[in-house]
């Protein structure tokens, strides 16, 4: 059961605001609908707009454990679902060697020895030797869970298909153990940086929300709430500067996190204006590409609002 304040869009919005996250009505309504309809949410948008943060705060609001699955190229079922602990199995086999010899001593021939082993073979493929990975952790958890499948667009299409299967029924099959069903239906948040098209099937099963860079006013609110020491004038200047950078064709546009970092850096060096010397000292907090930094430093007035 969710805390009562999370059962309305307004409640979610204010709860996020209490935690310093400026949340639009669209985000709050989508999270509310995910709760009501029991569907996963797919958050898409450029890097650094707070997609992962939404999942973390969502877990905090629902007093649920956050289980994160970071996707990458080559991610497979073994790393996402479960693995057998071969080291532990081998250790147990070594330790139980004498016991095994005793067990097999009465066997007269190979067939009877195999039959004796078969009766105990499943002991090494029990839950004691199972290493649960994020998906299985989320499904088998006794507590409510928010499962964050981060940057799902980085994973391969095969993994996407597998994920689809898990998200459809919230159950997985382990051949040695049988089907494991979820005790609590986990809340699932998927994020994507839109670097490749996800399959229609996956999209259809989720509520979709595209999160763009915030407006000037929203970003100003974010900076002021995250960096209390920043003056209003400086905050406005730095946000306008960052927004003008996003309109330029930079290799990597600054996200909200970088803007907050930059604001912190400006406060740390005691800056009051965005003079060229201040920019040259602090721009590394905002831009993460050498060519971008050089381009901006060459013509800072072009970006200064």
């Amino acid at each position: 059961m969710s805390p009562p304040h999370t059962l309305t869009p307004e409640g979610i919005e204010s709860a996020f605001a209490e935690r310093g996250f400026v949340c639009t009505g669209e985000v709050a309504t989508t999270l509310y609908l995910a709760e009501v309809l029991g569907k996963p949410v797919l958050l898409e948008g450029p890097p650094g707009v707070g997609k992962t943060e939404i999942a973390k705060l969502s877990a905090e609001l629902h007093e649920a454990q956050l289980v994160r699955l970071q996707c990458y190229e080559g991610l497979d079922e073994a790393k996402a679902l479960y693995e057998w602990s071969y080291g532990k199995q081998m250790l147990y086999v070594q330790l139980l060697r004498e016991k095994t010899a005793e067990l097999l001593a009465p066997s007269a021939d190979l067939r009877s020895a195999l039959a004796a082993l078969k009766a105990h073979g499943d002991e090494f493929f029990s839950r004691d030797f199972l290493l649960p990975r994020p998906l299985l952790l989320a499904i088998t958890s006794e507590q409510p869970v928010v499962l964050l499948v981060d940057e799902v667009d980085r994973a391969d299409e095969e993994f996407e298909a597998f994920l689809l299967e898990v998200l459809s029924d919230y159950q997985v099959s382990v051949p040695e153990l049988g089907t494991i069903r979820a005790r609590h239906r986990p809340r699932v948040v998927l994020t994507s940086n839109d670097t490749r098209d996800l399959s229609d099937a996956l999209r259809r099963r989720c509520l979709y929300l595209y999160i763009d860079y915030p407006s000037l006013e929203d970003e100003l609110r974010i900076v002021e709430s995250r960096v209390p020491g920043v003056g209003k004038t400086l905050a406005e200047r730095l946000v306008r500067f960052a927004q003008s950078l996003r309109k330029a064709d930079l290799k990597k546009s600054p996200g909200i996190a970088e803007v907050v970092d930059w604001a912190l850096a400006l406060v740390a060096v005691g800056a009051e204006t965005l003079s060229p010397s201040v920019l040259s000292r602090t721009l590394g907090a905002l831009l993460k590409n050498r060519e971008d930094v050089e381009r901006v430093l060459a013509e800072p007035s072009r970006f200064r609002a």
């Binding site: 869009p9 009505g25 669209e26 309504t29 989508t30 509310y32 609908l33 009501v36 309809l37 949410v41 797919l42 898409e44 839109d194 098209d197 229609d200 999209r203 259809r204 989720c206 509520l207 979709y208 929300l209 595209y210």
Partner: peptide
């Protein structure tokens, strides 16, 4: 179901609810 779950008088929420359920890409 989403339209039933939200306040239909609020156009912003109505838009967000239909958008989240019907439009699945940019």
């Amino acid at each position: 179901r989403a339209a039933v779950a939200i306040d239909l008088g609020d156009r912003t929420k109505f838009r967000a609810a239909l958008g989240a359920t019907l439009a699945k890409s940019r």
